[in-house]
Every structure is written in structure tokens, then in C-alpha cells.
Design a protein around this nucleic acid. Structure first.
Lengths: 191, 191
DNA sequence: TATTGTTATACTCTATAACTATA
DNA sequence: TATAGTTATAGAGTATAACAATA
């Protein structure tokens, strides 16, 4: 079809100019619902803008809150070169020592190959060690190093402090309510 | 340094075997806090696993809820080949016609170049049209096509239905409370 | 034959920065 | 000189699938 055949005619032929068009790739050709896409930013809530339904959706309220807090989270961990997934991994390994890579992957909800990369980075930073798993020479037993424990402790303090800041506008009771309500949200439907 | 010099010695030389190590790239070398990284999955909440601090953080409660709802959201839009950012764009353009690309980008919280791609896709799907902006031959005026209005209407119904499902475990009052609490969360700090 | 860790590959999303045509 | 839209490029994150060693 012709360049501007989008249902609306080219308006006024005298004032109409505008740059040239090209065609775009299809971001969801192979599998619409798969892949780790994370949506665009979408926190701003610019003044004088009508957000329509978006403002009525629980999902968007949660998303906005998530984005806002995530920023803070990332900042508070940046000084240790720790990303959110790395923090999660450290906490999980700390509280559940001797996990195997596959188990860690399951807990974190990522692919095994992703867990390998994650642990690679943490091991290179000397925070986590792969020890031979007793009784299975294929597997590793993941543990924190001394430096890992120390770093996790410091990072945890920072994270907790920033999380407290995020919730500082709410009373303790309200924070508890919020967590409880979030936890009670219905899981995805099957259809 | 040698392959396994990670702070912990090779345990027992008799039982120690385990695959070979290599080095990993650094995911946050250029700019720790930038880039659109979205964290790994992390919804599962596997039984018999100690999540430590994570279970006490508001940020993680929100993140889990977000991931859970997001799935549903994506599913409900997949049949129209509409992704969450596309849906946002359609709603914003619908409620605020004649936006320029740059304005749309600001509202969505994405880069101008991203907005171009987004609108490219929507235009190719014949849902959005770029019309010449009156008075500025550099700019476009974004509007929904007839098909765009129709599709948005249908998609909105689906989204609202699924959002209602997500909140179905809560009473109306509780849903209102949840939204209110989320909206009151403190914004990120400056430091 | 199944599983553990690994690797290679490909794909998506996003940002940065350079470029053009206007203003 | 600044701004709107565009383009190219590069980076991070992820998944998939194949592979070797071991179970």
C-alpha cells in the first residue's frame, strides 16, 4: 500500500510535508507472549495528560510503584556493583546454602544458563564460591565467601534503609496492609 | 589468577572434580544505574525456601505482584499483537490526540527513538496515523485511525476484565485501598 | 536415559549519539 | 542555535538448544 494510507487522507496538500517513512520490524513476530520484555518506563505521570483507563487499572498502579521503587533499589546497590538479580541470588544463597545451580535458577525463576552467568559474575567478584557437591560430581554446592557475607550484610542495610524510605509515607499498619493486599492478588488465569 | 582462586580452597582433592571455569562479562561496566534492565523473573516463591529479607521488603512484594499481573496483561493483549507499551501508547494518543512524537515519548518515559519505533509499529498495523502538525513542518500530530479506535476499545475491555480478575480476591474497598497506598509511596530520594 | 553445568546463538528492548530538515 | 524526527549502533538480559560429564 502507499506510504500514508492509514485511513486518514493527507490533510491539506499545501502545508503537508513531513519526513519520509520507512518500515519497521515486528517486535513480536516469533512469540507474542514470551521473552523477558519489561515494558517501557511509564512512571512519569506527566501533568495535564489524560491517562484514561490506565489510571483505573490495579496493574498500572502497581507498575508505577514498582518502577519508582526499583530506581531507588538499583541506586542503593550500585556502589557494590550489585544488581537486583545479584542481590536476590546472594540472599537466597545466604539463607539456603549448598544449593545447586539448577535449584538457584528455579528459585530465581530464570533459565539455568542465566544462573550460570549470574554465579559467574558473583564468583568473579569473590562473593560466591562453587564447591563440589558431596555425592554428585556433576553438581556444585553454592556458598557465600567471607567477603560475600560481609558485602551482603552491608548491601542489605542499604536496601532495607531505602525500602523503609519508600514506605515512609505510610504508617507501619498501612505498610502491613499494603503487603497483605499485594500478596492476596489473584494469580493469572489459565485462558 | 588460577581458575578456582575465589577465596575458598579446593576442598577435598580426592572428591574434587567439577567442570572448568571461564570468565564472565561485566553487565554493568559502562553505567551501573542506567539501561532498561528489568531484573530476572522472581515470582515463584518456591516452597521450603528461605527468602530472608526479601520477604520483608515492600519493593519485593510489589515486584512479585507486578510480575504476576503482567503475565495476564500480556496474554490479554496478545491476540491483537498489542504489547503493554503499545497499549499505553494507544490509550495516551486516544485521550490526548495530536501529540507530537517527542511528547508521547516524554509521557511514556521512553527515548524519542523508542517512540519512533513504537509508532512505526502502530502505524504499520494501521492503528495510528502520523498527520502533519499544523504550524510546524518538522513535527507530526498523532491520531488514532478508525481501526485504532476499534481495536483499542476491544483491547481495553479485555484488559479491564483481566485487571478485574487480578483484583477479584479483594473487595472493592480493598482494591481502592491498595491503589491509594501504592500511590502514596514515597518517590526515590536524591542521594 | 536423565540430569548438571556449560556454551553458543539469537532475539527483544532500550539508550546514545549522530544526522536532516526544519524552526 | 535549538528542536522534531530519524537512524545506526551498541549494550544488557533472556531464552533455546545442543553438548560433555556424570548419574
Amino acid at each position: 500500500m502507499s506510504p500514508d494510507a492509514s485511513g486518514t487522507p493527507p490533510a491539506a496538500p499545501g502545508t503537508t510535508a513531513a519526513p519520509a517513512r520507512r518500515k519497521a520490524r515486528d517486535p513480536l513476530a516469533p512469540d507474542p507472549a514470551a521473552s523477558g520484555g519489561a515494558d517501557a518506563g511509564f512512571d512519569p505521570h506527566v501533568p495535564n495528560v489524560d491517562y484514561g483507563v490506565l489510571d483505573n487499572l490495579i496493574g498500572y498502579a502497581i507498575r508505577r510503584a514498582q518502577i519508582r521503587i526499583y530506581e531507588d533499589f538499583v541506586h542503593s546497590l550500585a556502589q557494590w556493583q550489585i544488581t537486583p538479580p545479584r542481590f536476590s541470588a546472594l540472599v537466597i544463597i545466604s539463607r539456603n546454602p549448598h544449593l545447586k545451580l539448577t535449584e538457584l535458577a528455579q528459585i530465581l525463576g530464570i533459565a539455568r544458563s542465566g544462573a550460570v552467568l549470574l554465579v559467574d559474575a558473583l564468583e568473579e567478584m569473590n562473593l560466591v564460591a562453587r564447591r563440589p557437591a558431596p555425592g554428585d560430581r556433576r553438581a556444585y554446592s553454592l556458598v557465600l565467601t567471607t567477603a560475600g557475607r560481609r558485602t551482603l550484610e552491608a548491601a542489605t542495610q542499604a536496601v532495607v534503609a531505602h525500602d523503609a524510605h519508600a514506605g515512609s509515607a505510610l504508617t507501619e499498619a498501612e505498610q502491613a496492609t499494603l503487603k497483605s493486599l499485594l500478596a492476596r492478588l489473584a494469580p493469572p488465569r489459565a485462558d
